[in-house]
């Protein structure tokens, strides 16, 4: 076998590997610059193609079920039960008739992406809990979803915060199917996996029952910047 010629192939392999290592070492510093650059381009891009580039901004759609679940506004029901005095089932219209709250805050995903100033509108969890009347032995909430798979949890104290809501509005429009409509949870101060999509049930329990991702190692207490080994800026104080 002839061994003539220069070993360019080996140099390319090693060069790519070295570039990759450098990228890992300094990538975090590049990331912010590229993100803000792409955000500028994205705002002037009618095709929306920049949204598909890495770090191109906007929401990533995550769904753990087999398909995108759908419930019409008429079919939708939210059940509140468990350790409460007055279990109830609400239609979307009934939820909309309750006192409404609007929150505008950043959305921070535990995988790193962040969407600034996103508006959510709906009913505070504290109002639903007050209406239902939590029994003294109730300590936590378990959220279930009509995708049939996902679940989440909050302690009672967390749920009573003024930035924890059941949302049916996002950016001044009904929450779409992909974003968890018609009704989703919005846990503002926590990583976004806490904000369960396609919310269908709230059960008051006597202890915290870890949700879907928490069975796979995510923190149950998912404060932005103080959990999951991350130090992002808080989304809600």
């Amino acid at each position: 076998m002839n061994k003539e010629g220069r070993p360019v192939g080996r140099r390319v392999v090693l060069g790519v590997a070295a570039l990759g290592a450098a990228g890992v070492a300094f990538g975090a510093r590049f990331q912010n610059g590229i993100d803000s650059f792409l955000a500028t381009v994205d705002s002037k891009d009618p095709t929306g193609l920049t949204g598909l580039l890495p770090g191109g901004g906007g929401f990533q759609i995550y769904n753990v079920a087999d398909s995108l679940p759908h419930k019409s506004d008429q079919d939708y029901r939210l059940t509140v039960d468990g350790l409460v005095d007055r279990p109830a089932t609400y239609t979307l219209a009934e939820l909309k008739a309750m006192p409404q709250t609007t929150l505008v805050k950043d959305v921070q995903c535990v995988t790193g992406w962040r969407v600034p100033s996103t508006q959510f509108g709906g009913v505070l969890l504290s109002h639903l809990l007050e209406t239902a009347g939590v029994k003294p032995e109730g300590k936590a909430l378990r959220f279930t979803c009509f995708d049939g798979v996902y679940s989440e949890s909050l302690t009672l104290d967390e749920a009573r915060r003024p930035d924890m809501m059941v949302a049916h509005q996002m950016n001044n429009a009904p929450v779409t199917d992909a974003h968890g409509g018609p009704v989703r949870l919005y846990a503002a101060p926590m990583y976004f996996y806490k904000s369960a999509k396609w919310l269908s049930g709230i059960t008051v329990t006597d202890r915290v029952m870890p949700g879907y991702w928490e069975h796979y190692g995510y923190d149950v207490e998912a404060w932005v910047g103080k959990s999951n080994g991350r130090n992002d800026a808080p989304t809600s104080s």
Partner: peptide, 10 residues
Amino acid sequence: LTVRTGASFV
């Protein structure tokens, strides 16, 4: 975290 961010960037 910086290593992880760098890794997902690359």
